[in-house]
Nucleic acid binder design. Structure first.
Lengths: 221, 221
DNA sequence: AAATATTTTTAGATTAGTCTAAAAATACTT
DNA sequence: AAGTATTTTTAGACTAATCTAAAAATATTT
């Protein structure tokens, strides 16, 4: 049997995402944490994936995806992001609601389905969160995550993360409608006080201090 | 835990469909046949569903759905038929291809998703096969299955079944593009030789003998 | 480098869904 | 109504994915 179970798929995707943030082999505990399960379960699953040649594995040395593991994970990411795009663009969901549903939809196996969906959506290159959507061959445009001060005047980015994740900071951002996925355009920088004027989601103008800017990470559009 | 597993859902749907064709309690073997599994497995599952009060069950007496089992099954049918409609109307699948994919999609749990999909599709009352789509409260228009001679002149129906399912007859139908799901309009009946002129899928005109008509079942539109 | 702490793996048990084979209940036939 | 056939249920075993607790390996501290 050469199929991949839903659970195996979820492991592959978790490992893929951990690999994106580090060149090192991924630790058992890191996977356990991502999958909200025990280290023992992870070891069991790793052995299985290793036997199927989806991961490289040596005892106590962590794992990396093999080429075939990587391409499976990429295909899952493609499905996930296309479904998210569908939910937001066609069914009018807001971007915060869609993750959980897309987590289910990404396991629907038909390749034809996903390619048709891709066409139906107009072959988008990025999902509503600003993350790149792999094409049917698995290629995608990598967009570096940069801090707001690195974004050129006139350029646009999508908010993808924050440095300072204290409650007070997040609440402040929330008040400005600066949530993950928000589109930010740099209008002008003022050398006088190092402040920056931005436009949020194409309409709301806002002045940010340099301190705030340094804590915001965006991906360019 | 009060959730319903994918497998339980598949059993509920199979029982629901068997209930549609008979007033009698559904036999273990009938379910086993529909689910392509052993009678032993069915008995095990029935016990579980019975404990959850989704079916009425007495040993050796077969099962019926309870109200709550029925409403779960109806919700699955709603999902299945809406997804099929989406696949055919929006993604340009042909109606024969969609069943298997919809079989997967129907297990996506979000009610909000399915209600939004319903709106997106324009709240269709019938799926591409001509089967009724339950609304979000579980109500649907029942359309009786009638043989072609019972369909009035000028009326339209969707082909949903055949009486004579010999290979030769099916091959003959295939040649005329008369496949399940095909739309048939009665144009005129000729008393002289009891033949009937129909239009297939809104374009192809065709004369059928009475013998053929008696073997075709349609649902009215 | 020895002792301690942490991480990872193993061992053994559990649950859901399945199976086969045998036993029990029901239905058909003469 | 007795015997045979069929259907349904039970019993016991298997697999996938999980768990806890203990053992083994690796990393850190003194």
């Amino acid at each position: 049997m050469n199929t991949t179970s839903r659970t195996e798929e979820n492991y592959l995707k978790a490992i893929f995402q951990l690999c994106e943030r580090s060149e090192e082999p991924i630790a058992t505990n890191a996977i356990a944490h991502a999958m909200k399960t025990s280290a023992a379960s992870v070891t069991d699953m790793i052995k299985k994936l290793s036997k199927k040649e989806l991961v490289h594995y040596q005892k106590h040395k962590g794992v990396r995806l093999t080429d075939s593991g990587n391409s499976m994970a990429t295909s899952l990411v493609r499905k996930h992001r296309l479904w998210e795009t569908f939910l937001v663009n066609k069914l009018n969901f807001s971007w915060e609601e869609v993750h959980e549903i897309a987590e289910e939809l990404e396991h629907i196996p038909s390749k034809k389905l996903i390619d048709r969906l891709d066409d139906f959506l107009g072959n988008p290159k990025f999902d509503p969160h600003g993350d790149p959507i792999p094409d049917s061959a698995g290629n995608f445009t990598f967009r570096k995550q940069i801090s707001l001060p690195e974004l050129a005047e006139g350029a646009e980015g999508v908010l993808v993360g924050v440095q300072d994740d204290t409650m007070t900071f997040l609440q402040y951002l929330n008040k400005l409608n600066l949530t993950l996925g928000t589109k930010i355009k740099i209008v002008e920088r003022f050398d006088y006080d190092e402040s920056t004027k931005i436009v949020i989601n194409g309409k709301q103008e806002q002045i940010l201090t340099n301190k705030v800017c340094l804590n915001l990470f965006v991906k360019t559009i």
